[in-house]
Every structure is written in structure tokens, then in C-alpha cells.
Amino acid sequence: MMGLTPRQMDALRFIAGFQQAKGHSPCLREIAVGMGCSPKSKGRTWETVRGLQERGAIRVLTGRTRAIEVLVPVAIPRAPDGAPLRVVSMGGQR
């Protein structure tokens, strides 16, 4: 796996945390909102997800909704009660 940009790392943490909290993968809209972007910025969010896939961090399963497989271990921010946090701050540019 190549190094990830701060934006990609934030997206990866969000996806992994969402999966742990909800039991399924987030949709593009949920990823965008979870990263502090407009729900309408699905195009930019898809670019980030595609970049994660190209760098070997995730696999998007075609033909299925909410089908993202995280392929690398990732530290997930947690609340004081141990629950995964699903909203992450953007570490890089907006």
C-alpha cells in the first residue's frame, strides 16, 4: 500500500469506524457528511474513495451497495465509552 494523503486517511478512519458502529459500510453521502463536507459533494468523495482503492487500502465490491472492504488495519478514534467515532476532522485541505 502506498502512503495515504491526510484526506484519504480521514476517509479510511471514517469508513472503518462506521462499519464497526453500524455493521455495514457507509454510502458516499454518509462519507461526505462524516468528513464535514456537503452531502452534495459525492463526486469529490468518490475521488477520495477511488484513491483509497487505487492505493490498496480498501476494495469497493462492484454491483453491491454499501460494499466497501477495508484491507489495512487502521486506528479508529473512540469516544470515552469505547464506541467508535464516526465523524472525523479533516487533517488536510478542504
Rank of each mutant, 00 (worst) to 15 (best):
M1L: 06
M1A: 03
G92Q: 04
K22D: 10
Q19C: 10
G34D: 05
M2K: 08
G56I: 02
R44L: 15
E54P: 02
K22S: 09
M1W: 08
M35E: 00
E69M: 05
M9Q: 13
R94Y: 11
L85Y: 01
G34P: 01
V88Q: 07
P73V: 05
P73K: 12
I15G: 03
I58R: 04
D10W: 01
P6E: 11
E30Y: 04
Q8I: 03
G92D: 08
R94G: 13
C27E: 12
V70F: 02
A16G: 03
A75H: 07
G3N: 07
L61V: 12
G43R: 14
R13K: 14
P80M: 02
I58G: 04
K42V: 03
F14Y: 10
Q19M: 12
A83I: 02
M2Q: 10
A32G: 05
I58Q: 06
D10G: 09
S38Y: 10
A11D: 06
V74R: 03
R86S: 11
F18C: 01
A11I: 04
T62F: 12
R66K: 15
R50M: 09
S25F: 01
D10A: 14
R86F: 08
T65E: 15
G36H: 10
A83Q: 05
Q20W: 03
E30S: 06
L4T: 01
L12F: 11
A21S: 15
M2A: 13
C27R: 07
H24S: 12
L85G: 00
R86I: 15
S41L: 13
A83H: 06
A21K: 12
P39H: 02
G63R: 11
